[in-house]
Structure formats: structure tokens, C-alpha cells
Simulated assay, not measured.
Amino acid sequence: MTKTPRISFEFFPPQGLDASFRLWDTVQALAPMQPEFVSVTYGAGGTTRKLTHEAVGIIHRNYGLNVAAHLTCVDASKAETMEIVESYYEAGVREIVALRGDAPKGAAAWEKHPDGFASSVELVEAIAKTGKFKVRVGAYPEPHPDSASTQADVDFLKRKIDAGATSAMTQFFFEADTFFRFRDACVKAGITAPVIPGILPVISWEGAKKFAKRCGTDVPARLDEAFTRAARDGREELYALAQCTQLCDRLIEGGVEDLHFYTLNRPELTREVVRALGIQPQLVLENVA
């Protein structure tokens, strides 16, 4: 019998009224699934820093969820970044996802702020030294766009763990074997911290392919053909549910105990996948005071 995994969800902060309603609908739909934690992202180049902080506080206060707030090195001095860290602590947050971050929109490449952290390793080390947070980081089972190879990504992940990170969530992928190869490489490198696979339920296949191209994620030809056929036959949603559930099942059969879902603030498919894995919703009382 397949073991029921622990789960977590990623949300992104709203940038408008419609997006705001969508975020809260997503939180309301997925909070009853009892996630281990939920994370809230930054926009590219740190563009949603204030919105992220507000969303983190509201989710923590109103839903009682364990929130891991994203934090990047982009466009901020070390002092400014650590002020944000302290404000998260004051808001009741005890977990941070520490990332280098992407280059601001329009920039040719990522550049260090003159007084800022030079890498996610430095950021992890600074947060860990406070002794106030569990620090999570990103991991890349396929080479990061700025990386020379998967082995280089494994080596860099080891540096982040050694700097004080306690776990990592991977970029999404479409083949379970991609994760298993990466996990084996991590073990060989001496990484003992949990490496949690990141799962992308496919709400739009065309959108997922564009996302994959930006992230350096391989798109298997067989999957492209299958989604194309499913869309032509009017059953793309059904196939997306089957594809994502099968991927999760394969990971669990391979010993994975935690799954991190990139919800894109669209909860329906994620909720159906989680239920298919044997996790049933529990009553959550929202704090409306």
C-alpha cells in the first residue's frame, strides 16, 4: 500500500484585485488539506516584496498555517534584507525560503547589490546565524539556467546546506527518474538534509511548456504528444490529473515522503491530486476577527 505523503503548497502574492480574490480562494481551498507548510513567493527581481510580506502575515494569522516566506538577495542591501527577516519574525513567521532570486525585469543578468548578499549561500548563513528560523532553499534536478551542470547544482546545494539550510525544494520536473538521479547525486555528495520534489500540476500545457523553457526543465516528447491528444479530445483536465497523480505515486513508491506543489494560485487540480493520494480535507476554522 502506498504511504500517504506529507504535503506543502506554494502561493504567489496578488498584484491586483482579481488576483487577490484568487489567492484567498486558493488558501481557503487548500488549507483543509493540512499542509506541513505553505510558501509565498517573491516576484521576479523582488517586485512583490511588500505584497509577499502582507500575504505571509495574513495567511499566518487568519488560517493558522505554518508559512515559509520567500526571501531573495535582489535589489537590497544586507541591512535591508535582515530588516525584512526581523519583520517576518515579528509577524510570527519561523521559516524562510532563502533564494538568490532572478534578475529584475529588463536586466541582462543577475547582479549583486553593491551592499547586498552575493549569493543564496551568504543569505542562508546570515539567516541561520539569527537562530530564529528554519531555512529552506531551492534545488535543481536539471541544470539551473545559470549553472554549468547538474553536478555544479548539487555542489552548490551542499554549500547551502552546510551554511545552515535544513531542507530544499526542487524545481518542477516531468519524469520521476529525473528526481531520483538528482537525489542519488545529493546522497553521493554527502547531503543528508531532506530534498523535497517540487510538483507542477498542469493547468495549461502550453503555459507549462513556456514555464519549463524559462526554468531549463526538459519536456518529454511523449508527454507533449499525450497532452496535445488530450486537448484535441477535450480531456486535457482529466489527463492532467492522471499525469500528476501518476508522477506523485511513482515518487512515493521510490521512497519520497514529502511533496511540494506549485499551485499557481489555481487550487482545483492540486486539491484533486492530493485527494487522489489519499489525503482528505479536515475542517479549518478561519479567524475572521
Rank of each mutant, 00 (worst) to 15 (best):
Y88H: 02
R22E: 15
T72H: 09
R232G: 07
H113R: 02
A55Q: 04
L123Q: 05
R229G: 07
P5C: 11
A19I: 00
A221G: 04
K3Q: 15
G92E: 01
I279C: 08
W205I: 03
S120C: 08
I96E: 04
A19C: 07
Y140A: 07
A185K: 10
S119E: 12
N265D: 04
R275V: 11
H144A: 03
D233Q: 15
Q15N: 14
S39C: 08
T41P: 00
D75E: 15
H70S: 05
Y89F: 15
I59Y: 02
S8D: 12
D18F: 12
L30P: 04
V284R: 13
K134G: 10
D162C: 08
K78D: 09
F180Y: 02
I59R: 03
C248D: 05
G255A: 02
V38N: 00
R275F: 10
R250F: 01
A276T: 07
N62Q: 15
R94E: 03
E122K: 03
L283G: 08
V202W: 00
T245G: 05
E253W: 01
F180V: 07
I58E: 12
R250Y: 02
A19P: 00
T217S: 09
S204Q: 10
F9R: 06
V137L: 08
C244A: 12
S87H: 12
T245Y: 09
E286N: 13
V195Y: 00
K50E: 15
F179T: 07
P104T: 09
A176T: 11
A168V: 06
G234H: 01
S20K: 14
A168P: 08
D233G: 00
Y140F: 13
R100A: 05
V154R: 02
I199V: 13
I191S: 07
F21D: 10
L264V: 14
G190Q: 08
E111F: 13
P197A: 07
R229K: 14
F174G: 01
V219R: 08
D102N: 13
I127D: 00
Y239N: 10
L30M: 06
F172E: 07
N287S: 11
L123P: 02
Q243W: 11
G198I: 04
D75W: 07
E86T: 08
I161R: 13
F21Y: 12
D177Q: 15
Y63D: 00
G255L: 03
L17F: 11
K50T: 14
L23Q: 02
T270Y: 03
T166L: 15
K210L: 10
T166W: 00
A108N: 14
Q151F: 06
F11M: 09
D218R: 08
E237Q: 12
A152W: 01
E80G: 10
A231T: 12
F133D: 01
G46N: 05
S120R: 03
L65H: 01
T245W: 05
G92N: 03
R235V: 06
P104K: 05
K129L: 05
V85A: 04
R229D: 04
A68Y: 02
A103G: 10
T263A: 02
E272V: 05
D258W: 14
D162V: 13
V56S: 06
L200I: 10
R214L: 15
M169F: 15
